[in-house]
Design a protein around this nucleic acid. Structure first.
Lengths: 242, 242
DNA sequence: TTCGCACGTTTGATATATCAGAAAAGCCCG
DNA sequence: CGGGCTTTTCTGATATATCAAACGTGCGAA
């Protein structure tokens, strides 16, 4: 992980690094990020680091207050609801376009991918990150097949934001109402009816939202506690770690 | 327009100023912006200016190349198509939510507003900016009534981007297939059927896209000519002004 | 103990300076 | 008059320094 090459710019390097750490769950929600320490670690001034963090803040992965600090965003209930509303809008559109734009090869590819995702949902939690990655890839490929780069980009940003939240532990209650949700979703998407495809995707996103809200509920309390102040010491951030 | 107060931060002041100039059409597409001159004009260092331009670039209003320059974005054909695809997704969602979330007062208010917008479409082109403002307000209010701040924000950013493009002259061919498009749109939205509302909005956006593509066609050529290099002198930028 | 307040530390915001790359202008040669 | 080259100017990228505000700590009073 030393500097292999001056990729494009220092700011971009810092952006990529921090983004990856957040998506991998190395930086949990609420984690405070010090621009100066990060700059020292990456061997650069804190100016490119600031630009990188600013960009991540635009994308919704970080939040900061003028002279208080910068931390990985802790979503509120309304944040999550809003996120899923936007995501529903975008992915329903992608599903509609998919029915008319996807090639035969792509339809076959994605049906296989959906089967893999559904299968992995029942595996032990060993490689949770792997599951999330594959699940995200499925949705991204659906968007790609819609042949609209802007839409793909918007969906990718949306997913990146959600990835932050998904790294929190899933409650092990372990009952799944639908056995193969993604497979049946793709089945409808590969049909010719864009209306039905959109509705199927809508239901898929809504059920995903329901699960996310359950899982994130403890963090909404955390926002009330830690929301106002940016704790620099590690004490407060351990309140929910146990 | 002198500095009335240190609103929030210098960067925010610069952001607001430049954004307003773009939306008002004072900075046409392809116009190169000098950070240092702008900083001098606003009485600040170019660091907050850079932050502001970065944000505007992120929102899609500007484009820049590392050491070449920054200019008001010149969209490609695919940019505009993609923009309208995303916009369709978001506004259809807003329309669906509107049917179940809007209050009676809001429905009445927006129907009146729609009537005003449709009426103004036939006025002489005297106050074109005013029409655009009012039209945008109508769509924003529809999103607001969906009771989802994230969705409203996303739609607002989308509209800001489109505003840049709308400042180019409308071809005076002057035939309107629908006489009162917004009024009939609101009529459906105020009904109880979210499906029909979504579809009505979808058609509305699609027809809007068609008109935008026609109007922007000459600028797609401009992108081929001016796309590679950032002309600092004013010569090249006048190619399409006549 | 608990609350409140002062003080040192850390933070983001901003200013200034420097650097390498891109564009423009001048220049030479045909 | 025109095409290639150098030089100059301008641009964004980055480094360093400074400042006011927010945080954390500890002391002291109730």
């Amino acid at each position: 992980m030393t500097e292999t090459a001056d990729n494009l710019s220092l700011a971009f390097e810092a952006y990529t690094t921090v983004r990856q750490r957040i998506l991998r769950g190395e930086l949990p929600m609420g984690q405070v990020i010090s621009r100066r320490k990060l700059a020292a670690e990456l061997g650069m001034s804190f100016l490119p680091v600031s630009e990188a963090l600013l960009r991540l803040e635009f994308e919704g992965l970080l939040e900061s207050r003028p002279r208080a600090g910068t931390r990985v965003r802790i979503p509120t209930l309304r944040d999550v609801q809003g996120h899923y509303t936007v995501r529903e809008a975008l992915e329903v559109q992608a599903a509609r376009l998919f029915t008319s734009a996807a090639t035969v090869e792509e339809r076959n590819e994605l049906q296989k991918l959906a089967a893999r995702v559904d299968l992995m949902a029942y595996q032990p939690e060993a490689d949770r990150l792997h599951y999330l990655t594959l699940h995200e890839k499925l949705h991204r490929r659906i968007a790609d097949c819609a042949r609209c780069e802007s839409l793909s980009d918007a969906i990718e940003k949306t997913h990146a934001l959600a990835s932050t939240w998904m790294c929190v532990g899933r409650s092990g209650s372990g009952e799944e109402p639908k056995r193969t949700p993604h497979q049946s979703l793709l089945e409808v998407l590969c049909g010719a009816d864009s209306e039905r495809a959109g509705e199927a995707m809508r239901r898929h996103i809504v059920s995903s939202q329901t699960r996310a809200l359950e899982r994130l509920q403890p963090y909404f309390e955390m926002h009330k506690v830690n929301g106002a102040t940016y704790a620099r010491s590690a004490k407060r951030n351990l309140e929910l770690a146990g």
